[in-house]
Computed example of a mutant assay.
Amino acid sequence: MTIHLHRGDLPAGLDFGRAVAVDTETLGLSLVRDQLCLVQLSAGDGDAHLVQLDRTSYDCPNLKALLADTGVEKILHFARFDLAMIEKYLGVTMSPVFCTKIASKLTRTYTDRHGLKDVAREIAGIELSKQQQSSDWGAAELTEAQQQYAAADVLYLHQIRDGLAAMLEREGRSGLARACFDFLPWRARLDLQGWGETDIFAHT
């Protein structure tokens, strides 16, 4: 595994292929209060690229171009949050997407454990550490432990996607999953506009 830390933006000319794994780190989990600090990416080749953002400007044209490219599938776990953060701070709507958490919930109906750690263990045979999940991602210098944690969240998403896609196909739920993935940008916008905790489809 090689971790590449970039400050401000991705270098020009990087090619992530037809699908890129994406994750974000923020100052917290509030879309109103907490800023986007880091975007992690991987082509599924064992390398991770971490973009430590300039939170005074979010001027990162190469990163934005990649995330906005409709010819590149973005693979995320709990994409709803990441899509909202990226739309709010980078002004980019990511599409198409594959959310491994939604895919897990549509296929792994024999369990209620759909966190990345649990899905990675079953689908990819990988043990992920979540020790650095609650750390200061706004720090000027990221520790080696933070970088290792951030990288691990994207390094195995291609493998997890492939495993879950096979399960979706087996259960005849691929079309249902795709419809859910396509709705995610709108779900993110509902969150950003204040309907995060409201089930607008409910009768009451």
Rank of each mutant, 00 (worst) to 15 (best):
T111Y: 04
A120R: 06
E87P: 02
T107Y: 02
P96E: 05
I126H: 10
L83D: 01
S95V: 09
G44N: 06
A103D: 09
L128D: 06
K101L: 03
G138S: 15
S57K: 02
Y110H: 15
A150E: 04
L116Y: 12
A139Q: 13
Q147A: 08
V72Y: 00
A145C: 02
Y156N: 11
V51M: 03
Q133A: 13
N62G: 00
E144V: 13
C99W: 06
A140F: 10
G44I: 01
F81L: 03
I123P: 04
R80T: 14
P96L: 02
E127L: 08
A139D: 12
S134P: 00
I123A: 10
A43Y: 09
V51T: 05
Q132S: 15
L76V: 11
G138L: 13
V97C: 13
I126K: 14
L128R: 07
K64T: 10
D112T: 14
M94R: 01
D54P: 08
A139K: 13
I126W: 10
L83T: 01
D54N: 15
N62T: 13
E144P: 00
S104C: 12
W137I: 00
Q40K: 00
H77R: 07
A140C: 10
K64M: 09
V51E: 04
I86N: 02
D118V: 02
R80H: 12
Q132T: 08
E122R: 12
S104L: 07
D54C: 11
A65H: 01
Q40W: 03
L83R: 00
Q131A: 15
N62A: 12
A103E: 06
D59T: 09
S57A: 14
L116M: 12
L67Q: 07
Q40N: 01
E122Q: 14
R108P: 06
R80S: 14
S42W: 10
E87T: 13
Q52M: 05
A84T: 07
Q131Y: 09
A150Y: 08
